[in-house]
Design a protein around this nucleic acid. Structure first.
Lengths: 190, 190
DNA sequence: CGTTTGCTTGAATTCTGTCAAAGCAGGTGG
DNA sequence: CCACCTGCTTTGACAGAATTCAAGCAAACG
């Protein structure tokens, strides 16, 4: 839980007090998963958002041909979950698979709503996090539509070396929207 | 302003009262722009987010070669602005050009912060809007990395026929990350 | 060990971009 | 009313980029 506290403190304008954190903490549930376990599977409703304390996970979906498309890669201090399913209580199309032994803190939709409403620092945190994630997503869109495959890879490698290190190349390739073969060739060329 | 009120009411759990809307309204400034005017230009700091009451705008940037890349297309009941520049008071890399005669409601960062803090319905609105825009951005990323050009176009045409109708093809093509030539050919075929 | 998992590579194919040219409106000024 | 822009779309020929499929190799794992 200490990891969560430090993480939240990075987003708020004044540090979270002991009392406030006591409340916040009480709404989370700790869970451990072993490599290759699923946090979420196609057809389920995403009941919790998962804050990753330790470990790594990938979010992907299967297209009509059964091909995997990685849409998100998460490591420590990121959130995993399907926000659409979570917000609207509708079945997800994604799988979220833990890629290493992982520890997460789970929070339900109802509890998020309570904290947003009753805990100013948490409310502030959510607003700031949304802002940050909005900006990150915009960058990824820009990269996807206006960069070549090579530029996308180099940009990604520069921004997220840690993620690059912890996932195999074919997963990174899928995340970048290219095939493993193409990525292998790009790396060879330089 | 009535448009804004109706729009906000779509996002909140209980309708906004006259008193509340009076307060909210007072933080916005109305502005008219003529076709081809700029709401934001490269190097400026994005001082306001613009709610589009009437009209249409496109957001784009110029790459090193001077090629335009359209990153967003906005019509009525959408927000235009560069959130990164807005949030961090840093110079934008984007241009936002009004594509028709347009009316907007502007709100500054300071005023957003005040309303988020002091007006519950507005706070709730921002949370919900962020959620929705997060989901929309995720879809666009998924489309960009795992669809073919043709699929991207068809998906876009199905989801946003109104936007398709109001912008020329070469703008749509850039938004989809393909050239106008390719888009023209895709349309012919399918 | 044998099996799995991941990475590389080649050849053929398909898709997309580039560049240049031509055509087609709609709007403007003479 | 006409001639002329200007902005937009279409098309062809070619070059380049990425995918597909298959094969082979290396490292990791039980």
């Amino acid at each position: 839980m200490q990891a969560l506290r430090e993480y939240l403190n990075q987003y708020v304008s004044s540090l979270i007090s002991d009392e406030e954190f006591e409340v916040i903490q009480s709404y989370f549930v700790h869970k451990k998963l072993r490599k290759k376990q699923y946090l979420l599977q196609y057809g389920e409703i995403c009941k919790h958002m998962a804050f990753i304390v330790k470990g790594a996970a990938r979010k992907f979906y299967l297209d009509e041909k059964g091909v995997e498309h990685v849409v998100d890669l998460c490591i420590e201090n990121w959130w995993a979950g399907d926000r659409e399913s979570f917000a609207m209580s509708k079945p997800t199309i994604y799988y979220i698979e833990v890629w290493e032994d992982t520890e997460v803190l789970l929070i339900s939709r109802a509890n998020v709503a309570i904290l947003e409403y009753e805990c100013k620092p948490f409310n502030e945190f959510v607003l700031k996090l949304d802002e940050k994630s909005h900006i990150a997503k915009q960058k990824r869109i820009t990269s996807a539509i206006s960069f070549t495959a090579k530029e996308r890879y180099e940009d990604f490698a520069a921004c997220y070396p840690e993620i690059l290190r912890r996932f195999p190349q074919h997963v990174i390739a899928s995340y970048l929207g290219i095939t493993k073969d193409t990525l292998s060739r790009l790396r060879r060329q330089g």
